[in-house]
């Protein structure tokens, strides 16, 4: 039971990151390997703000998330929008370069050791035979709520409808006179914001470090590949699944290999169903 809870708590972080990435990938069609960096920044910044500038916790978290959103907009406007006529190959390379740039800078700024953001609620519940820190419940509820909110946004608001159209047929969307770059930036902002939210909450419950971005981005990709690239709820489910796989693997086989289980699972999925588990037909 404890394993299930552990798995769900970590898993919902992956879900949030994955859902954000699904949005970015469907609307902008950029393989954004740098997706883990806003998450990392929102995880690392609050502690610095709190210790060096005396910023209270809630504000520090909000600033961290705002920084993540700003990074997303920056990626869109300053980097990917300018490279829209370049081959997909180049976009992949560019996003890798961004990962290296940002994480190296982060290590120089914050060092490489793990840390945690203090100040979260530290009540631990004893439910159904497992110890559940209340922070984990906060994370799970937030993940669910934000996915519901995003789903509503996509299906019931004007900007959401426009982004759906862009994902379905980018060519036609341009011809409608839709200012495509603006919505790219919006997709990046929302997606990175979700990643930032995940990072900020994660840092309250678990240890984080400057180099966590790459592995997390890879896990987010694992999640969206599970989900077949286009499905928000598929990504949500995929994140939970990944979390559970890792948790059970760490518990029953070996905790050092925690990350490995997800990667092995990914390889297994890719090799069996190269298009992903929840793959839908979309206009490629």
């Amino acid at each position: 039971m404890q394993d299930i809870v552990n798995g769900l708590a970590q898993g919902t972080i992956y879900s949030m990151a994955g859902v954000g990435l699904v949005l970015i990938f469907s609307v902008v069609r950029v393989p954004n390997f740098a997706h883990g960096e806003p998450l990392m920044v929102a995880a690392m910044l609050p502690l610095t703000l709190m210790t060096f500038y005396g910023v209270p916790l809630p504000l520090a978290l909000l600033i961290g998330i705002a920084a993540a959103i700003a990074m997303g907009v920056f990626f869109s406007a300053a980097v990917f929008a300018r490279l829209s006529r370049y081959p997909e190959v180049a976009l992949l390379i560019v996003s890798l370069a961004l990962v290296v740039l940002i994480s190296s800078a982060a290590v120089m700024l914050w060092g490489d050791s793990p840390r945690q953001t203090p100040g979260g609620p530290d009540i631990i519940l004893d439910l159904l035979g497992a110890r559940i820190p209340i922070m984990w419940l906060v994370i799970m509820v937030t993940a669910l709520a934000s996915t519901v909110a995003l789903d509503f946004f996509i299906s019931h608001t004007s900007p959401g409808r426009i982004m759906r159209a862009m994902a379905l047929n980018p060519f036609a969307a341009q011809l409608m006179g839709i200012p495509v770059k603006r919505y790219h930036a919006l997709a990046f902002a929302i997606g990175s914001g979700l990643a930032g939210l995940a990072g900020a909450l994660f840092s309250l419950a678990f240890a984080v470090q400057s180099t966590m971005g790459a592995a997390l981005a890879l896990k987010a990709f694992i999640v969206i590949i599970f989900a077949g690239m286009g499905s928000i709820w598929g990504a949500f489910a995929g994140g939970l699944l990944l979390g559970l796989v890792e948790s059970f693997g760490a518990s029953y086989i070996s905790s050092g290999y925690r990350d490995t289980f997800g990667f092995v699972f990914l390889l297994a999925v890719l090799l069996i169903r190269p298009a992903g588990l929840f793959a839908r037909k979309t206009n490629a």
Binding site: L92, L218, D259, T260, F263, L267
Partner: peptide, 18 residues
């Protein structure tokens, strides 16, 4: 393309972990 890149990335990380 993308899937292959992710798969080899995962492969590298698995070996690193091992």
């Amino acid at each position: 393309d993308l899937h292959f890149a992710v798969a080899t990335l995962a492969l590298g990380m698995i070996v690193s972990d091992v």
